[in-house]
Design a binder for these strands. Structure first.
Length: 416
RNA sequence: GGAGAGAUGUCCGAGUGGUUUAAGGAAACGGUCUUGAAAACCGUCGUGCCGGCAACGGUACCCAGGGUUCGAAUCCCUGUCUCUCCGCCA
């Protein structure tokens, strides 16, 4: 969430920026509730001060206090209970309204919807004429969606044989790259509780636009990305400034219901309920985050260039950013089957939005404590990486060539 | 899953109803002393919220949420987590 002080000081800006993201936010209502909350807080504090005064009078005194103190205490207790109940209602209302305010997008984010995202870079050759990845892989018995459906339902699958080995090779390669860039490799919990999920920016259980799988009778959901586990990692912690930036790389399966997305491009491995992903994650000081965002993007580009996959980079428009991000880059690979770019990875600067939700702060050298910044970026999402390789490495004699950088992780084989 | 024990500040740790505004120690930071350092001594040393230009004042927080009481770190209930033992198990 945002800093309430920032909202008070920049009400119009927040209203405008929220609208540009497509969020309906009633800032006036929020400020009204905020004022009410502060007023009640003052009343409650005053009552508590009176109660404490009476308790102070008993210091060093044995036995029961005077009847007047008891009577006054009883009266304070009644008033306090009433005011506190009222305050609780107002606080939860306030919390709901705060929750509904998205992060403020940077000024260099294009305003508008999906079609307004701007291309900032192109790399590689826009080839055409490859065989569809699903047909290509199914013929070679590398993927089995039918049995996936039998066991778990539509959009679940088995990877088999050389393609499963190739997935492993891509993971190993990406791991090699990010660890050399200073990211600490981690495996993470595949489930997270509601506080961590919501704080990261994923809708709570009650929301009907649900993308999460929940565990019955537990306060747990399967993670949609390791970003959730990596954001929660430092929840409620204060990190010394000289330890930042902290760089982590989390490998995990990602579980997504993808409800309501069936109209979108969904063939084969492109949109599935479960896929593996290696996620980069950074905790930085507020002044480091913009540079770190560029750094994470550069690592993503390095991976795709070394894999020889043509791509472009887009600066995502405000309406497509989602609540937590202040700025987001997507890397889209060139599909030589569809003749267009398709989403492959993305990286976001969430500034202090997630960190404030989960109470993650930095202690400055001068002792001051403030909310830090978090960023995330995909190193590789495995299902989609496989599609990109399957489309770009088909040989004339029906084999799949192995990208050079992956060969060491495929036992030196050059094709499969 | 069953039984028992526990959870206090950056860390260790005292505290079973009212001189605790959380003792004491360690670490850290500043200073005195010293050629420099160590030691010693002195001082500073949690977080949030509200008010204030500020100094500062008020308030809350001793795992979390309820309860008892004029008054709760302390008593009661529930939950979470940790440890020990038992069971099960890759």
């Amino acid at each position: 969430m945002l800093d309430i002080q920032f909202i008070r000081d920049h009400a119009e800006l927040v209203a405008e920026k929220s609208a540009q993201k497509g969020y309906k936010v009633d800032i006036l209502k929020l400020l009204e509730v905020d004022a009410e909350r502060r007023d009640l807080l003052g009343q409650v504090d005053a009552l508590r001060a009176r109660r404490n005064e009476n308790a102070d009078k008993m210091k060093g005194v044995q036995g029961k206090p005077d009847q007047t103190i008891i009577d006054e205490g009883k009266q304070i207790k009644i008033e306090l209970a009433e005011r506190e109940t009222y305050l609780n209602d107002v606080e939860s209302k306030f919390g709901e309204l705060m929750q509904g305010v998205p992060n403020v997008a940077f000024d260099d984010v294009p305003v508008g919807g999906e079609e307004d995202s701007t291309e900032i870079k192109q790399w590689g050759e826009q080839t055409t004429g490859a065989e569809d990845h699903l047909d290509f892989a199914t013929k070679r018995d590398w993927v089995d969606f039918e049995r996936g459906a039998k066991v778990a339902g539509a959009k679940f699958y088995y990877l088999k044989g050389d393609l499963a080995l190739l997935e492993n090779a891509i993971t190993q390669y990406a791991l090699d790259v990010v660890t050399k860039k200073g990211f600490t490799f981690m495996t993470v919990p595949h489930m997270a509780n509601a506080r961590i999920s919501t704080g990261t920016g994923f809708a709570p259980r009650s929301d009907d636009q649900e993308d999460q799988y929940f565990i019955e009778n537990e306060d747990l959901a399967l993670i949609g990305t390791a970003e959730v586990s990596l954001t929660g990692y430092h929840a409620d912690e204060i990190i010394d400034e000289d330890k930042l930036p902290l760089l982590y790389a989390g490998l995990s399966p990602c579980y997504r219901k993808e409800a309501g997305t069936y109209g979108k491009h969904a063939r084969g491995l492109f949109r599935v309920h479960q896929f593996n992903k290696l996620e980069m994650y950074a905790y930085t000081t507020p002044e480091q985050s913009r540079e770190m965002h560029e750094r994470i993007l550069a690592i993503e580009e390095e991976i795709w260039q070394n894999l020889g996959i043509p791509y472009h980079v887009i600066n995502i428009a405000s309406g497509d950013l989602g609540a937590p991000a202040a700025k987001k880059y997507d890397v889209e690979y060139w599909s030589s089957v569809d003749g267009k770019y398709r989403e492959l990875t993305s990286c976001s600067n969430c500034t202090d939005f997630q960190a404030r939700n989960l109470n993650i702060r930095v202690r400055r050298k001068d002792g001051k404590v403030e909310v830090l910044h978090t960023l995330n970026g995909t190193a590789v999402s495995l299902a989609r990486s496989l599609i990109a390789v399957l489309e770009h490495y088909q040989t004339d004699d029906g084999k799949l060539r192995i990208p050079t950088v992956l060969q060491p992780f495929m036992g030196g084989r050059t094709e499969i």
